[in-house]
Design a protein around this nucleic acid. Sequence first.
DNA 1: CAGCTAGGCTAATGCTCATTAGCCATCACA
DNA 2: TGTGATGGCTAATGAGCATTAGCCTAGCTG
Lengths: 225, 225
Amino acid sequence: MGSAQGGPYERPHRPARPEGTPAADRRSAIRQAALRLFAVRGYGATTMTDIGAAVGIRGPSLYKHVASKHELLAEIMMGTMERLIADNTAAVAGADGVGERLRRSVEAHIRYHARHRLEAFVGNREIASLVQPEQDRLLQRRSVYERRFRELIERGAAEGAFHVQSARIASYSILDMGIGVASWFHEDGEYSVDQLAYQYGDIALRIVGARHPDLPGEGGATGHA
Amino acid sequence: MGSAQGGPYERPHRPARPEGTPAADRRSAIRQAALRLFAVRGYGATTMTDIGAAVGIRGPSLYKHVASKHELLAEIMMGTMERLIADNTAAVAGADGVGERLRRSVEAHIRYHARHRLEAFVGNREIASLVQPEQDRLLQRRSVYERRFRELIERGAAEGAFHVQSARIASYSILDMGIGVASWFHEDGEYSVDQLAYQYGDIALRIVGARHPDLPGEGGATGHA
DNA sequence: CAGCTAGGCTAATGCTCATTAGCCATCACA
DNA sequence: TGTGATGGCTAATGAGCATTAGCCTAGCTG
């Protein structure tokens, strides 16, 4: 016996569950592995065999857990967008004033892109790899997210708290600089996620021309808490 | 007669050169077509047949003009990076003072990302699709480009003209917001390339905490040096 | 007008993949 | 102890693709 398959291969039957691994764990391990591979090699260059190998099984066995490679991508990307929106909702809740709301929104944005850099990275790069019903849905959700920033800045400008030439451009520049974080941030780098979020919050407030106590401008870093 | 190939196909022999098309033009038409397709579908999802069809020939005929699909991508990406660096060099030449140098650098950065949005878009998204000698060379060139911004900001901070918490983060945020332009800019949109470049120049100066006469903001001109 | 070259074309070639089929061992549970 | 479900595995299947081979015509050159 040994290898019961009868194939010419030497590999013994691995115990089906190395640990106490309920089905859900295995599935999420697959998603994690796929995420890492999509981030490093790109969706198109990642094979089901690669993903399987990363969790210790063969490519075809993945189909016992996921419907398709596309489903994996769609799930990762949609999940990312939804969490971004949910984080924004939570961040903004109970904040008074446009300045505070913008700061919290930006901090949540940065925090997400730093903490979940792979998700964010893939979520931004692989849009063209999505197939049609999903691609449109994703873009719609993204535009909801973007609109929140734009409208917040428009409101701030209308109230006289912000001073921008274009709310649209201000919002894009703030969002895009956050997206960039996902491509260079490293956990063990110079700054912690919290420090990063705080600094980007300051930068965003500068972009919209808000004056606020923490950043007097001249001697900028001085007063900050 | 008609189709001299003898195949079962109905397609007549297209004149080899619809216009006065010297070899170089055909080659650059191919590069253009490849660029557009890479941008829209992604490198991996674009086939040689697609590229051929876009210039009116069959996939295999492309090999009379280019060595491989990879070569096309590498050429596009390297060319983009080199022009970005060259534009920066030209922009900065003869500029006095860190503020002016930063403004001109940013304007050139934005201008490139708006005018050559497809190149810039592909250049940023398809890094993982490059094979090894080229990928490293590209990343090296990119880090040269990034370093220019960072060092400029460091210098400005040292001179007391800029006020940033981190030159690295300031430079990344400026570069990243420019990269973002390539993904949403549209020639016939709300702003011209020049207007866009100017606005982003202002934003960059705000990010680095430079006071400057053009953008008083709310009493912003107050402490102006 | 002979012949070379450039640049098309079709038809292989030889992969690489995602996905499906069909088989089997383990295990929870009766 | 028997049995059904779960989750592995190998071996198709079928498609798509980059690239190569080999052929052919038109047009220039002499």
